[in-house]
Amino acid sequence: MADVKPNELEQRIEAFHQDLMLLRAEIGRVLVGQESVVEQTLLALFAGGHVLLEGVPGLGKTLLVRTLAQALDLQFSRIQFTPDLMPADILGTNLVMEGPDGRRTFEFQPGPIFAQLILADEINRATPKTQSALLEAMQEHQVTAAGERRRLEEPFFVMATQNPIDQEGTYPLPEAQLDRFFFKICVGYPTESDLVEILERTTGQGPEPVRTVLDRQALLDHMNLVRQVPAARAVKDYAARLILATHPDHPSAVPLARQYLRFGSSPRGAQALVLAGKVRALMQGRLNASCEDLQAVALPALRHRLLLNFEGQAEGITSDQIIAQLLEQVPRLPATAVH
């Protein structure tokens, strides 16, 4: 990186903005509305994180992922999670294969996980055992099958969807699994105008196919670029203060966290905040992450990392309420910088 000159860096930043614009335009051609969902999905994409999309059926979760996969020149794989899905169905298994010479050998048949963009549809319908099969792949970008470790090709994204209603026969994701998702994005209902636009597009002629606007290498370059965006110590301090304020036993915990949380966010939450903040800064044309960026990404980055206690669940408290209080009460300036 030291060899990169400032004008080259400027060119890379410019290329990032162009690609981002194209990607947005391509997604926007298929998906109506849901700007914040698209924005957050792209944030996670450039940060190299996995996304958990939550919303009732029919809101375009799967469509978003599929469109994204088509717009990016990445290997796409869709796994429909069902209760009878087994880990081997995801990871792959050794099969007895007969060679030309008639000899039979075990040969590994890779599962659908061996792709670059995975759509894990209705992930909470699979058993915890099957869900856990994704842990290693999501965190370490590798799979261990039949005692052999196999690398997954970069970039590797898991985009999972889950339905918040119709909970019968579902298995809530374990905390360890949840923590591995970079963002948890809640997909809401479209507005009236958006709904009309959806009707316009879907009840007429079939839409034009999605064009590929970003190849794999460009995406990797952009992912590398966003990690270089500088974040001041003050911004990192703010991220740390935010995370610590979610810990119910910490002195700086906000009241709602103190009362309704069983566990606060893990350090992965702070990493997600800063990394997403960097991406957002670059997407907005700034060359440095700011506290405002952290505030903007706090909801998707932290909401699945806060574990409510029984009292919180009984009171109907949501993680979003606690995060809102967090952003309101945690000071942006350290005590030394205040008057």
């Binding site: 500088p230 974040a231 001041a232 110590r233 003050a234 911004v235 700034r286 060359l287 440095n288 992450a289 700011s290 506290c291 405002e292 960026d293 942006r332 300036l333 350290p334 030394t336 910088a337 205040v338």
Partner: peptide, 18 residues
Amino acid sequence: DTAQWLDLQLGLKERLVT
């Protein structure tokens, strides 16, 4: 600290401190 304070007062989004 002063740079950060100035950032906040002027809405410079941590540009100065960075």
